[in-house]
Design a protein around this nucleic acid. Structure first.
Lengths: 206, 206
DNA sequence: CATATGCGGTACTGGCGAGTTTCGGAAATG
DNA sequence: CATTTCCGAAACTCGCCAGTACCGCATATG
């Protein structure tokens, strides 16, 4: 720290724009091949970078991946523009947009590639929860709380548990069943689990 | 097949009792280290066998693992002695026994070690579902159907989906959150998700 | 222009693990 | 007892990959 300003910055400067490109390439390879199948050469090739450039910025493969996961949360839901339709079902269904599904699918695939790493790097558990799981849970919790506040659903439901159900079932479907989490599946979770658990029924047309 | 009887069985006979011991050792190592971290030497050492003995019986590491997973379903719930308490909650809670939790935890840990393999060996997806997921789903489906038949819960609930919820949340808790699936958690799923989704309430004491 | 560092690319090193072979001994056949 | 196949154990081959070193060039300082 004390030496940062004193250090004369000689030579060519590091191109900081390559950092996010390398991290993105890392997430892509991670989603495609998983942590153990991923090689630094794959990441470098994907980012059109040299292997030395990667190792100049991250000390090891595991640190690169940990950093990539931590930086994943940036491309997230913007909490300012959340739907507020007046009904719980309306809010939940409004979140089922192609872009959201696409983003969620990608995160689930990255998560699938990280499972083997979680036991060896417990700090990753928190990063993954913060980047993938927590945002969706927070949104669901807000929707449920609003529904309680307006008297749409009873106040004694288990908000914490119910806001996790959707993510848990999507995770299970992606990691174990290896089936796509599409709009129909998400709607069936809403209408078949979450709403009934809140004492509501889906519209008859569904 | 035609040559089996004609072949003169010379020399020492293969010790068939080693097969299940090696498969059990495989599942143990798999649960502890995952597929990519597992080595044949670990399995052989655990089973007190030589590496050659393993390769005389299975052609490769992946075939050994696939066989071990396929043979996992044997130690399962005996469908003859299922509880029938007269209420849906009674049946579900009666399944939450130490032995069942222990068995389920082990299977979930094996599953965690297999996630990285599922994308490369799609046939494993079916084996895992048959050995781990399906039995529990079948039991839950039976409980729900009985509750419908006796008029305890409405007949228009989504039986397929609701019989998967418990397993999905347990899987998510083990693989991603890395927290133990204990009795309290399972009870909270029953009382906080499944029963409310069927229009029932847990007893006030809970 | 001299120096120092970053860049993409390639060659290299070292360790690890799948799969094979070998060895001394044990069990089965004839 | 000779032969054959199994056993556990250990040594071996071979390919892959993390991490390092180096090349030729680009870009920054003074």
């Amino acid at each position: 720290m004390t030496q940062l300003d004193a250090a004369p910055k000689l030579g060519r400067k590091r191109d900081l724009t390559r950092d996010p490109e390398i991290l993105d390439a890392t997430l892509e390879v991670l989603a495609e091949t998983g942590y153990d199948g991923m090689t630094i050469d794959m990441v470098a090739a994907r980012a059109k970078a040299g292997k030395a450039t990667v190792y100049r910025r991250w000390a090891s493969k595991s640190e690169l991946v940990i950093d990539a996961v931590a930086c994943m949360k940036t491309a997230d839901i913007d909490f300012d523009a959340l739907p507020d339709t007046g009904t719980l079902r309306g809010d939940l269904v409004a979140m089922v947009k192609p872009h959201t599904i696409e983003d969620g699918t990608r995160k689930l695939q990255v998560m699938a590639g990280l499972v083997s790493m979680l036991s060896k790097h417990p700090e990753l558990v928190d990063s993954v929860r913060e980047a993938v799981t927590a945002p969706r849970v927070r949104v669901n919790r807000m929707f449920l709380q609003r529904a309680i506040d307006r008297g749409e659903i009873p106040a004694d439901i288990d908000v914490d548990l119910l806001s996790q159900v959707g993510g848990a079932m999507a995770t299970h479907r992606t990691l174990i069943l290896r089936k796509p989490v599409d709009r129909a599946f998400i709607i069936s979770i809403i209408d078949g689990v979450i709403l009934p658990a809140c004492g509501l029924r889906a519209p008859a047309t569904a």
